[in-house]
Computed example of a mutant assay.
Amino acid sequence: MATEEHDRERRQVFGDDAEQYDTARPGYPDRLVEDVLDFAALPASVPAVEVGAGTGKATLAFAARGTPVTCVEPDARMARVLRSRCTGLPHVAVEVADFETWRPDRAYGLLYCAQAWHWVDPAVRWARARAVLRPGGAVALFWNHWDLEDLRLAERLTAVHARYGLAVPPYTILDPRPRPAGRGPRARQWREMEADGGFAGMEHRLYESAHERSPSGLIELLASFSGYRALPAALRDRLFRDVGRAVEQDGGSAGVRVTSSLFLARSRA
């Protein structure tokens, strides 16, 4: 129970500065969004549901292609930014609710979740997915995983953390452990869907991209991760000051590789 409560608290920290999160986080590849919609093959009248929509980083990409979307977001602060981003999009509805207890009034042809499925209670998430989908409905779960292109800079920034007695937070851009992006059938998401027995036609796809971050841009990205948001503000500010200085001394920018990992499946008829 303590772990579940901790996870619930961690997933709520993103709303502490929802605008900052929206600015810092990159979106998702156009090809990924198109592949999801091709896989789902939604009839025009059948909507999609987005779980943990946040501030709309994925929502806008699907809505721009005309997909009717119901967004389920547990944090009212994130939902407030989401609604502002979706002004003028009548085919996007926003509901503030936990997916675990949300009760839809219709069946959906596509359930997608960007960067948030791991926050949904594992005891019920697959049963809830099956409950909201019509037979044959599609599931699309995707994440961005980041790495610094310059390993030497990554080592310097890790040393900055060590000076403050801090380990690099897990699943962040400096985490040296292998990313789960390429695991395919060995990934937890795949194995859980197989074990649930309610899904078929599973696929895994990867998308690669890269961009440059200024010192402040890299700090903004770090600040969007829950492991950094959970630090005491004064300590976090000192850490980020030294991170920025290290990037400045290393040429003034940091190359970031992004691997977008997509899991697809269909609910069994």
Rank of each mutant, 00 (worst) to 15 (best):
P185M: 10
N144M: 00
T172A: 08
A162H: 11
F142K: 00
R183K: 12
L174V: 09
G165A: 08
R156F: 13
G137S: 10
L151I: 13
R156I: 12
N144I: 00
H145Y: 15
T158S: 15
R156W: 14
H161M: 08
H161Q: 06
H145P: 04
G137N: 08
A181C: 11
R183W: 14
F142I: 00
A154E: 09
E155V: 08
P185C: 09
R177E: 13
Y171F: 14
P178T: 13
F142G: 01
L166K: 04
A162F: 04
P178E: 13
R152K: 08
I173H: 02
N144L: 00
G165H: 05
E149M: 14
L174R: 07
R183T: 08
V139W: 04
T158R: 15
P178K: 06
A154L: 07
N144E: 05
A181P: 04
R183S: 09
A162Y: 04
R183F: 07
L166P: 01
A140D: 03
G137T: 07
G182E: 09
R156M: 14
P170I: 07
A140V: 03
G165R: 05
E155W: 03
A162W: 04
H161W: 08
H145D: 15
P176V: 11
A138M: 04
L174Y: 13
A167I: 04
L141F: 06
H145V: 03
D147S: 14
L153T: 00
T158F: 02
A167K: 12
G165T: 10
R156A: 15
W146H: 12
D175Q: 07
T158D: 04
A140G: 04
L157V: 03
G182R: 08
R152V: 15
R163Y: 05
P185Y: 08
V139P: 01
A181N: 09
A138R: 01
E155I: 03
D150V: 01
V160W: 01
L153S: 00
R179Y: 06
G184L: 02
V160D: 01
T172V: 10
A140R: 01
P178C: 10
A138V: 09
R179I: 10
R163V: 06
D175R: 07
L174P: 07
T172K: 06
G184A: 04
G165E: 04
A181S: 14
W143D: 02
R183P: 01
F142C: 01
H161N: 09
I173Y: 05
P176G: 08
P185Q: 12
A154R: 02
D175W: 12
T158Q: 06
P178L: 12
V168N: 03
R179E: 12
E149T: 15
A159L: 12
P169A: 06
E149R: 15
L148A: 02
T158E: 04
L151Q: 15
T158Y: 03
Y164F: 15
L174H: 09
P178A: 13
R163G: 13
P176N: 08
G182A: 09
P180K: 11
W146D: 02
Y164W: 11
L148G: 02
R177T: 11
H161S: 05
L151M: 14
L148I: 05
H145L: 09
A181D: 14
P180C: 11
W143R: 01
H145S: 08
Y164K: 06
G184S: 03
Y164V: 06
R156P: 03
R156E: 15
A167T: 11
V160T: 11
I173T: 14
